[in-house]
Design a protein around this nucleic acid. Structure first.
Lengths: 208, 208
DNA sequence: TGATATATTGAATATATGTTCAATATATCA
DNA sequence: TGATATATTGAACATATATTCAATATATCA
């Protein structure tokens, strides 16, 4: 016998991770179709041929990355949903965290960018389309529920909670896209501008 | 002599417009790289070869469309700037109009989508990159100025006007991207949710 | 109607690139 | 150390597609 199964498995996982990261970088920079297998291989520091020991095709890498990106956004929304604070506070906290993440996490920006890119082309692999169809709305539904609860609680403004959720996410997504292509770090974003959009401001009520 | 110069010119303009529209449709649907010359030709109802009587290359069509899209957004921002109403009203009015346009104008959605697409890939033609570099910030600067004036006037909330302008446009852009891929017309957007983000609400002041 | 300039076509060409594969290197175990 | 399974390479292959070009159609004017 030669190398053990487990060792090989470990090597495969590590190497695969390297390829994934390289592919993500290239896809985000150039898009699926402008990215050549050679670009990914070069970025990962391997020969083109080796890539096919880990993925059957360029499309398969893309689908893998999209799936991961979608799962990340879903996880993030679940972690907010499951917090043990009031709905209004959830919205405030989520916005604070998301704004901070936009300003500080390249990975988050890449994730948003990849999903936006994929959502905006009918030419991506069918499997990726299906995943988006299946998973993309979950974060919207999660926030919608929180908005609804916040309205009952009296901390969230009136209006269709579906609409509020759309405003919530399109806002974050728009910011992420902007920040991923503008190294404009002179401006510090204040999440309170956003949260004032959804939250009934108690301070004013108190002042009265 | 054969056909007159003017007649030919008119034909060229008409035909070119047909090609432009076909290309815009395909680029928006699939992206620059996934769109084949054949796709554009088929969409325009002409042979591939004819396309090259009007444009030197696929890239040239793309650059032409990007330039147009950028000019449209600049024009829109200028038309708001030049209105003879108070700064706070300008913001309110612009948001109302933009939301309405997002809900009703496919052309506007296509414009936003094309610019976003182009801004998000380093693989697009250099000339398109230069145009974006040169023109993309103008609407941001226009809104920034209006925010500043509104703050002096006392109708716009405090905070870095640059930041407010970023929130303004990334919001609109995020919405446009969402709406261009979601035929979700069950939700009617209320611009007042957005405008409450920037405007000091006079009603409450009066109530006091 | 005939001459002519231009529009239009679609097959041919050139090139780029995703994928395959035969050859080689390497790491482990007996 | 030698056997062996797997990793790795890079050239070859197949294919897709941007672009060119020779041939043909068409619309106007004299």
């Amino acid at each position: 016998m030669a190398r053990t199964k487990e060792q090989n498995e470990k090597m495969r996982v590590t190497r695969k991770e390297k390829i994934r990261n390289a592919a993500l970088l290239q896809f985000v920079k150039q898009g699926l179709f402008a990215t050549r297998i050679q670009d990914i291989a070069a970025e990962a520091g391997i020969a083109q041929g080796l890539l096919y020991h880990y993925y059957a095709s360029k499309d398969e890498i893309f689908v893998d990355l999209i799936n991961d990106a979608l799962d990340k956004t879903i996880e993030a929304s679940y972690s907010v949903r499951d917090m043990e604070i009031d709905p209004g506070e959830k919205i405030r906290f989520a916005l604070e965290r998301l704004i901070d993440t936009i300003e500080n996490s390249q990975t988050f920006l890449d994730t948003c960018r990849l999903i936006t890119q994929a959502s905006n082309s009918t030419a991506i692999p069918q499997e990726a389309r299906d995943l988006i169809q299946e998973k993309r709305n979950i974060p919207y539904q999660v926030i919608e529920k929180i908005m609804e609860a916040g309205q009952k609680e009296g901390t969230i403004i009136a209006g269709d909670p579906k609409m509020l959720s759309i405003f919530f996410w399109t806002n974050i997504n728009g910011l992420a896209i902007y920040y991923s292509t503008n190294n404009n770090r002179e401006v510090k974003l204040d999440y309170r501008v956003l949260s004032s959009m959804f939250l009934i401001e108690n301070e004013r009520e108190v002042e009265k």
